[in-house]
Design a binder for these strands. Sequence first.
DNA 1: GTAGGATTGGATAGTCAAATCCAGTACAGG
DNA 2: CCTGTACTGGATTTGACTATCCAATCCTAC
Lengths: 210, 210
Amino acid sequence: MSARAAPQEAPSTRKGRATRDRIVAAAADLMYRHGVAGTSTPAVRDAAGVSSSQIYHYFADKDDLTRAVITFQSEAILAHQAPLLARLDSIGALRSWRDVVVDAARRQNGAGGCPLGSLSSELSDEHQWARDALADGFTAWSEAIRAGLAAMIESGALRPETDATALSLALLAAVQGGLVLAQAQHTTDALEAALDTVIAHIRDHAEPPA
Amino acid sequence: MSARAAPQEAPSTRKGRATRDRIVAAAADLMYRHGVAGTSTPAVRDAAGVSSSQIYHYFADKDDLTRAVITFQSEAILAHQAPLLARLDSIGALRSWRDVVVDAARRQNGAGGCPLGSLSSELSDEHQWARDALADGFTAWSEAIRAGLAAMIESGALRPETDATALSLALLAAVQGGLVLAQAQHTTDALEAALDTVIAHIRDHAEPPA
DNA sequence: GTAGGATTGGATAGTCAAATCCAGTACAGG
DNA sequence: CCTGTACTGGATTTGACTATCCAATCCTAC
């Protein structure tokens, strides 16, 4: 019984899982740096140190591997940001989150953009399955931001009537747009301007009157 | 003397110019819908109704054609938005511009994203020449927005100390990020939230006190 | 330890895109 | 008109990539 017909999500042996993970990690790295179309399966094979057949043993085709990469990147971003977003309790904490995002972009001169945003831009129009997976990733991300803002409302750091949903979307859009521009302009100016503007608006409107 | 060695920017005959323009327009359309990597030269050939050799008569290679497409899209966007941006004289005019952007995105359900943003996301990391051309396009765009805001300052619609440069970058980032999210989520919610937040901030801070 | 599925290696079809070649046609200047 | 250059058509070469095949090896359960 080969896995060919329907590659399993989880290989049954420890070694199999390790191989599968290595393939996904290598593919994620290459696709982040060169795009999906710019990443060939031979390149993934070499980077992961496996042979061609492994890839097609664990994944039905390149699309299936790409889907795994989308999931991988969604989880990586959330794992990285969730701790920060879960601890939002003041405008200062929001600014700290801003600094983390800006510093990350600055460290690589804007190169790469957002792992999720880049994939979305390349795949969303073309593949329904990709758009669904990417929309889920973005929704989880904006939801994490929204939850952080909701906690700030709860704690009294923001006014009760604050529209946390709209503001979380505005913040996420600021991140995405700022990163797109950082990629082309090699400056985080736009990213900073966008985030600072939204955060200033939150400060002015959402902070309870002294 | 063939044009092969260094394809001229402008064919000398009327017919040549028409052919070249047809190729660029077809390539721009295909690359907008399917990405650069997803657009083959045979596809461009068929869409433009020319033969393979025409493409390589007018362009050194696919990269050269892509460069022409970037220029084409930059000019198309500016041509479309400049009239609106040149006439900014009030917060209401800014909101009208916002509506045009949002309506355009809504009409296609977010599909396609920004013609310049998509190209940037795909090419900026990989090709220096593309990043330069795209950065120029974004700079011209943000400059047009900045000039509009500057005119509002001039006319007294905004306070003199308003940072038009930062706000123009924030607005452009809001557009780019909102369109990225619209592509994946098939909603203009994030685009609207981001633009509305920045515009609200401008209203609150930049309008002169009554 | 040993049987049988899980995993691995590498060669190889089959497909398609990028770029070139060369022969033929259209057109502008004299 | 006529000559040379601009332009056009389509076959073709070359190379890369996706996906498959099958034999060999490794593990794990018994």
